[in-house]
Design a protein around this nucleic acid. Structure first.
Length: 192
DNA sequence: CCCTGATTCGC
DNA sequence: GCGAATCAGG
């Protein structure tokens, strides 16, 4: 594969969006993340403020203009699985966050709310515990190895993803897998 | 161990 | 110019 105009453009775009080199490489196909990084450097666009790689680069002033328009185009990962409803009541301990933003949920989000009904009380309790030590990641911080269980109201500041180590092959951590995948037998005796 | 970006250097 | 190997931080 070679760096055609289109490919370079996509590279620039994604890099600009903060995508990681590996993600870009994966998207482009036929190249490794090293190739992407190499290209990025050759193109002159390099430093970003990404999670892991301050390296030994000297400290540089970066006004970082970044004119952000108030748009909310959810660039959700393609691998986004079906979203479970924000589960448990989430016993809020609230360490120190008094200035809470009172954003009125526009209309009525939270569509699929199949009701966190007949789930093992134990599983729920477990989830509540887990959510206290959750890593509270943002959408962009999720990977295929982090629990993607959403907590809270997406229309509020109080929204995050679990982020704990996900079970291999599953989108959630152990605790959340527990409430996400209910055996038929469990919801069986629903007396209709 | 997983991930990240940075750099080097033979091609 | 390219990118694998390597390095280095999280």
């Amino acid at each position: 594969m070679s760096w055609t105009d289109e490919r370079v453009e996509l590279l620039k775009k994604m890099w600009g969006e903060g995508q990681s080199a590996s993600q870009i490489a994966k998207e482009l196909g036929g190249v490794t993340r090293n190739a992407v990084i190499g290209k990025v450097h050759r193109l002159g666009l390099s430093n970003r403020t990404t999670g892991a790689a301050p390296a030994k680069a000297e400290p540089k002033e970066k006004p970082a203009p970044a004119p952000k328009a108030e748009a909310k185009p959810k660039p959700a990962p393609k691998t986004e699985p079906a979203r479970p409803a924000a589960a448990a009541p989430a016993a809020e301990a609230k360490p120190a966050t008094p200035p809470r933003r009172q954003i009125i949920p526009a209309g009525q989000p939270l569509p699929p709310q199949p009701s966190a009904n007949e789930i093992s009380p134990e599983a729920l309790a477990k989830v509540n515990e887990v959510e206290k030590k959750a890593k509270k990641l943002t959408l962009m911080e999720l990977t295929e190895k982090t629990c993607k269980w959403p907590v809270g109201d997406p229309a509020t500041d109080d929204f995050w993803f679990c982020g704990l180590p996900a079970e291999p092959g599953k989108p959630y951590c152990e605790a959340h897998v527990g409430v996400a995948f209910q055996p038929m037998s469990s919801r069986r005796d629903r007396r209709r």
